[in-house]
């Protein structure tokens, strides 16, 4: 099941002015649960696409296909929903760099 929560991000606390809470939805990545994503995309102000920077190469094709799928979704294209690609697990020494990940994703797509 997706995790959902409304809270104030740490970065907002130090900001001056009005503090805006954010509603964050963590959608399961398993392919059988992908349709869940369609329930949330129409109301999304932004998408964070999380990539495992460690186990990147063996999953390159699957990651690219999923990302392509998101970038071409009607609701995303129509509303120009911003997508950020987040390279996770970069604390590990064998993790790939964000530049490498970007190049490989561009090449694959």
């Amino acid at each position: 099941e997706p995790n959902e929560g409304t809270f104030i991000l740490n970065s907002e606390i130090s900001k001056k002015g009005k503090i805006k809470p954010v509603h964050l939805v963590d959608v399961p990545g398993h392919s059988r649960l992908r349709p869940k994503l369609d329930e949330f995309l129409p109301q999304a102000a932004g998408i964070v696409f999380v990539v495992d920077a460690l186990e990147f190469i063996p999953n390159l094709r699957a990651i690219s296909e999923y990302l392509y799928d998101i970038l071409t979704k009607g609701s995303v294209v129509k509303k120009k929903v911003p997508v950020v690609i987040c390279c996770n697990k970069t604390d590990k020494v064998t993790a790939h760099t964000k530049e490498f990940i970007r190049k490989q994703l561009e090449k694959e797509m």
């Binding site: 809270f7 991000l9 954010v22 963590d26 990545g29 949330f40 109301q43 495992d52 999923y66 996770n88």
Partner: peptide
């Protein structure tokens, strides 16, 4: 809307990220 959707393949670490963002860590 103030909804941000976290997505990615299974095992990419979305759920850990979700709790880190929620708990401000």
């Amino acid at each position: 809307s103030n909804t941000i959707v976290l997505t990615g393949l299974s095992g990419s670490g979305k759920t850990v990220l979700f709790y880190q963002l929620r708990d401000g860590s």
